[in-house]
Every structure is written in C-alpha cells, then in structure tokens.
Amino acid sequence: MYGDQANKLILEARRSNNLSELPLHQHTLVKDIVEEIGVLNKDVEYLNEQQSVEEIPASEARVHQCQLFVTHLCLRRNKRCLLAYQKMRADKIAEFLWLNIDPVAGTETTVSHLKEDSDSPLNNTLMSKLVLLNLSHSEQEYYKQYQDLVLEFKSGFADIDLSGDLEPPTDIFIDVRVLKNGGEVQTEYGVFNLIKDSQFYVRKLDVDRLIQQGYLEEI
C-alpha cells in the first residue's frame, strides 16, 4: 500500500535499464498498482464525502485533510512511476529499432540491401522474437507503429543511412572478423561467406548492419 508496489516497479526499471535486452513486462505488478490506485481513489471519494456530509470538529478536520493530502500524493506518485516504467521500456524498444532492424530504401544501398533480405530474416526474427515475447500486447503494437514511423522518416533521406554508426568514419574499407556462421553475403565488390573466425577486407558501408547485428567484428 501507499507506493510500495510502485517502488518495486522503479527498481525493476532501473535494473532493466542496464541490460542489453528488454526483460519480461511486469504484468502483475502493473495490474496491482492500477488496483492500488483504484483503492486509493475510493478512499479519496469517501473522505470527500465524509467531509461534506458531517460537521467535523476543527481538530479532526485537519487530520482529515492530511489524510486526503497523503492519499493524493500517493495517487500521483503511482501514476508517475507507471509512466516512468512504460517510458523506459518504450525508449528501449525505440533504441532496438534504430540499431537493428531497418531495411533502408536507397539507391546506393540496394545491393547490400538485397543481401540483407536474403540473408538476415532468420536473424531478425530470432532477435525480435526475443524482444517481442517479452513485450506486452500494447508494446508490440507500439513497436510496429514506431517501426513504420521511423521508416517513413528515413525515406526522406535516401542517401544517408540514418541508423548507421554514430562513430565518425575513418576508412571506407575495414578489416572484419566473422563471429557467427551465416550465409553468403554479396557486395558491390564481390561475394564472401560468413564462416566463423575468417577475416575479410570489405567496404564499411556494406557491412555496417552485419556489425550491428553481431555477425562481424571490426579489427
């Protein structure tokens, strides 16, 4: 009562903020808090009612007021905690989206794009499944809608891969090492196979997404 549950939720939020993946949505906790808010709200109504119906001596009126005040504070605090939790999760989802799953429509990247399509659905579904299972229903909805939104925004900048690396580029060609086995990758400069522990000298633009997805490591 009086915000204990919300405190748990905030702790949970803080914990998952440091994780690289999104943990399971705390359905029951959220439900409990919403219930708590309902109960507190009933209290408020009851107190208000009492105040208007009975004539209360001055000393007791102050007690009443205090009780009302504390209840209101709890209500608002619970709400803020719920919002904070949800916002944190939404931000995480957005972050995932910017990092990983982003088919960009662009003239320059069509080649690498095709390669992604033929190659990475396996990876994408695996990764987003991992996330999607942990999401609540409305979060999944949000995920889909935000994905559309980001795609729409990015289509305005066809020449720049907006979700690309935010580190300044140094070379166009880089050395990479393969971390996971994968299929064949086609680039403008030829074809290479993703075999674990092999190394390649490739164009950075072509493999940016593979690095983000954890297939490759820059060396």
């Binding site: 959220v30 719920l82 919002l83 916002k87 939404a90 229903h137 409305s138 909805e141």
Partner: peptide
Amino acid sequence: ILTQLYNTSFLGK
C-alpha cells in the same frame, strides 16, 4: 503512438 501505449497499458484504467 506513445500516448496510445500509455492508454492501453494502464492510463485508461
């Protein structure tokens, strides 16, 4: 869409 998310998950209740 954020508001929608809040509303469906708890704010509406």
